[in-house]
Simulated scan of single mutants.
Amino acid sequence: MRLSKAFYIVILLQLIAVTGLQAQMQRQRVAVASTVDDAFWTPTLITQPTTEHIPARNLNVTIMHSFGIATTDAISNFFGFDNVQNVRLGLDMGLTNRWSVGIGRSSQLNVVDIRTKYALFQQDSLKKMPVSISLQGDLGIITQENRQPLSDDVSIASSLIFSRKFSKRFSLQILPTYAHFNRYNAIGSQNLFALGMGMAIHLSKRYALTAEYYPVLGEHLPGTKNAFSLGMNIQTGGHVFQLFFTSTEWHLQQFVIADNDQQFWAGDFRFGFNVNRIFGL
């Protein structure tokens, strides 16, 4: 009888020890940090790049459209829809979960652009890294015939993107941006700086309000206004549709900064849309 009681006591102590160990392991698993995703849903907010990245071995196909000024001869031009101002077709591929490369072509000036984006840091759930930081570079080449050397048709843009998803509903980003034109029209070489700002308010799993602003720091080019855009994202399966009103006809950062002569709040806005579709390779 004594051996039997001792045996049961040993078994009971072992069960208690195993249960305690499992509970400790569960607590350790809960404490593992994970990256915070879906701050903006797409690699491009409206015209600004975001800290969202395309997963490795995935391809993002984008179609970007902008139309004429909605308030100019609104009835005869059907609120600008009769005037397709600019179309950009683009492909971006995730080489890793942090690094992507892309190429696109805009109908305006027939600009071909090559870009890349890399995630330096990613916001995590334990707040050890409170923000996401990405670096994006873009090389643009005007391919429209203009009887000037190819070197004069080159422009670049570089942004350091800081973003934070403050809650399930609200995300904010700022992106110091540098743009350079080897030759801008008849003005010659130009260096421009801007401090982009963007935000997203997630209304539900399918809808989100977006806005972005591109104040140029320092000297503007003649006639240039700070670009502003206001939009709505609609997520449907593998597609994200972006509908927006914007002051700029461009979808490339350096041209948004250098070539926006419209003032959104004065009523000089146009309708546009982006379509994003992810394909697994």
Results as ranks from 00 to 15, higher is better:
149 P>S: 05
176 P>S: 02
188 G>R: 05
159 S>A: 12
183 R>P: 02
160 L>T: 08
143 T>I: 01
167 S>A: 00
180 H>C: 02
122 Q>W: 07
145 E>P: 02
150 L>K: 06
170 F>L: 05
163 S>H: 05
108 Q>G: 00
136 Q>A: 11
186 A>F: 12
136 Q>K: 09
157 A>Y: 14
96 T>Q: 10
98 R>D: 13
148 Q>L: 10
114 I>E: 01
135 L>I: 09
173 Q>A: 02
180 H>N: 04
149 P>Q: 03
136 Q>T: 09
105 R>I: 13
172 L>F: 15
123 Q>G: 07
117 K>Q: 14
130 P>W: 12
100 S>Y: 04
97 N>C: 05
99 W>H: 09
171 S>H: 03
150 L>F: 13
185 N>Q: 05
105 R>G: 03
112 V>S: 06
144 Q>A: 11
111 V>G: 03
116 T>V: 03
154 V>F: 12
97 N>Y: 04
132 S>P: 08
123 Q>V: 04
129 M>L: 15
172 L>N: 02
121 F>K: 05
159 S>E: 12
155 S>R: 15
112 V>G: 04
106 S>G: 01
178 Y>T: 07
106 S>V: 00
181 F>A: 02
137 G>Y: 08
171 S>F: 06
186 A>E: 06
167 S>Y: 00
100 S>N: 11
101 V>E: 05
185 N>S: 03
139 L>H: 10
132 S>G: 11
103 I>F: 09
103 I>V: 13
98 R>N: 12
161 I>G: 13
174 I>G: 05
134 S>D: 14
148 Q>A: 13
180 H>Y: 14
130 P>L: 07
131 V>E: 10
149 P>F: 06
102 G>K: 05
138 D>S: 12
117 K>L: 03
117 K>T: 09
114 I>V: 12
156 I>P: 06
153 D>Q: 15
98 R>A: 09
183 R>F: 02
153 D>R: 15
109 L>Y: 08
175 L>S: 12
131 V>L: 14
135 L>G: 11
103 I>Q: 04
132 S>R: 12
173 Q>E: 12
126 L>F: 08
177 T>F: 03
108 Q>Y: 10
158 S>H: 09
101 V>H: 03
107 S>P: 01
101 V>R: 03
154 V>M: 11
160 L>K: 05
173 Q>D: 07
159 S>T: 13
115 R>Y: 14
99 W>R: 10
139 L>A: 10
138 D>M: 10
139 L>Y: 14
165 K>V: 00
116 T>S: 12
130 P>V: 11
100 S>I: 03
104 G>H: 03
111 V>T: 14
114 I>P: 00
111 V>W: 06
179 A>V: 04
103 I>N: 01
157 A>P: 15
143 T>S: 14
162 F>H: 09
120 L>P: 06
169 R>T: 01
177 T>V: 05
102 G>H: 06
161 I>R: 13
157 A>V: 15
173 Q>M: 13
109 L>E: 08
142 I>E: 07
173 Q>F: 11
104 G>A: 01
172 L>P: 02
134 S>R: 05
120 L>R: 07
110 N>H: 10
156 I>M: 07
160 L>I: 15
111 V>Q: 04
111 V>L: 00
157 A>K: 15
118 Y>F: 13
104 G>S: 00
185 N>Y: 03
111 V>M: 08
101 V>I: 15
130 P>C: 08
143 T>V: 07
121 F>N: 03
166 F>T: 00
